[in-house]
Amino acid sequence: MDFDSIARFIAVIDNGSFAAAARVLDITPQALSTSIAKLEKSLGVVLFDRERGGITKPTEFGDAFLPHARFMMAAEQRAVEEVHARRDARSGWVRLGIGESMAGAPVARAIARLRETAPDARVAVVDGYTQDMLARLDAGELDLVAGAPDSDRAQARDLVQIPLYVSQDVIVARADHPLASKSNVSLADMQDYTWLLSHTRRDSFQTMIDAYAREGLKAPQNVMFMDSVTVGIELLATEDYLIFISRDIFWPRLGTADAQFVVIDAKRPVIERNACLLYRSDYPLSAMAEQLRDNIIAEIGESVAQSSIPQREVSSTARKRSKVG
């Protein structure tokens, strides 16, 4: 059974005769008869009764087959349209993992830009720590990961890594925290407060310990390990806690007169975070994923140019994309 034979079967019914259907299809009556005979043979039934005057009516088997034939032709058309849409990056799925080093605002704008050009796009966004996101990339659950780099893996395995920018972790507190309005906050000033640090990424904890050790001070004893940004923000909003975190996570909540949180004016501890895009080179990106990748790079470049992302250094890739965009 082939789609040409099914389409010709429908044409005979819609036009009332073999002769009329052949004219519409621009084929010979003999070719049409051959297609219908082939279809009847594959089904094992007679589909048409031919009457005098060239009138052709479907048999009970033809009537039974007709709705299925129309469905199959519609399904074929939808399948072709879906494949072409995916090929042309107008629809289809793209799955993005957001790591701890990535600024949310430019990614959101990149997704909005994608939806403008591909309104039928289906976008799934998952956030967490980069290592968890890379595990999901390996499992085929994600197409792209925007987060911290994995240089060892990039060198050892098939992992494409596009650097975007470098920023520094900051210490954040609620706006009415006792240290919020103080200048040049020292490690000693922060010693007795409760700190919120990442449980998964212990580099924050180690950096804090090392900073206090270098100045001969006892490290803070009140430490809560927290990987839930949502719960961490709620705790920070109601208690005199300090959180040592990527500024990009808090960027939308900072920098305005009525901001709920502020960056503590402290020079130490310091951690630099590299933000990048990662994806597998052994599994080709879909056209939709490529478009989102390019949109993120362009938005990062534009955000840096407008100082929407506080950074020490922006990659040449993002800078070039910004100029092109």
Score class of each variant (00 low, 15 high):
268 R>F: 10
235 L>G: 08
181 S>D: 08
70 R>S: 04
162 I>L: 14
206 Q>M: 11
146 A>H: 14
97 G>N: 04
97 G>D: 02
33 S>G: 07
15 N>H: 15
139 A>I: 07
21 A>R: 06
33 S>P: 00
230 T>K: 15
229 V>N: 05
112 A>F: 05
180 A>W: 11
242 L>P: 07
219 A>K: 13
181 S>G: 12
79 A>M: 13
58 P>D: 07
263 V>E: 10
35 S>I: 04
209 I>G: 00
38 K>D: 03
254 L>G: 04
14 D>L: 00
185 V>H: 03
206 Q>P: 00
127 D>G: 06
192 D>Y: 08
44 G>Q: 05
48 F>T: 03
318 A>F: 09
230 T>Y: 12
317 T>P: 00
194 T>R: 15
288 M>D: 04
24 V>Q: 13
35 S>K: 12
76 E>N: 09
7 A>I: 06
6 I>T: 10
308 S>R: 15
147 G>C: 14
94 V>C: 10
20 A>K: 14
239 E>P: 00
73 M>Q: 09
321 R>C: 01
181 S>F: 06
104 G>F: 14
199 H>D: 11
167 S>P: 00
242 L>D: 05
320 K>C: 00
196 L>N: 07
34 T>W: 11
8 R>V: 00
131 Q>V: 12
156 A>C: 04
26 D>N: 13
23 R>H: 10
296 I>N: 02
23 R>P: 00
66 L>K: 11
76 E>A: 10
56 T>Q: 08
225 F>V: 07
223 V>N: 02
158 D>S: 15
295 N>P: 03
14 D>K: 11
132 D>R: 15
314 V>K: 07
196 L>M: 06
201 R>N: 13
175 A>L: 05
23 R>Y: 02
231 V>L: 08
112 A>H: 11
101 S>Q: 08
210 D>G: 02
252 P>K: 09
193 Y>A: 08
309 I>N: 01
207 T>G: 01
34 T>R: 15
285 L>D: 03
192 D>R: 13
109 R>N: 12
222 N>C: 07
155 Q>H: 11
174 R>H: 14
140 G>F: 02
251 W>A: 07
229 V>W: 08
56 T>I: 08
9 F>W: 09
177 H>Y: 12
171 I>N: 09
307 S>C: 11
108 A>C: 06
321 R>D: 02
92 G>L: 10
8 R>Y: 10
153 R>Q: 03
70 R>A: 09
272 E>N: 11
289 A>D: 01
6 I>C: 04
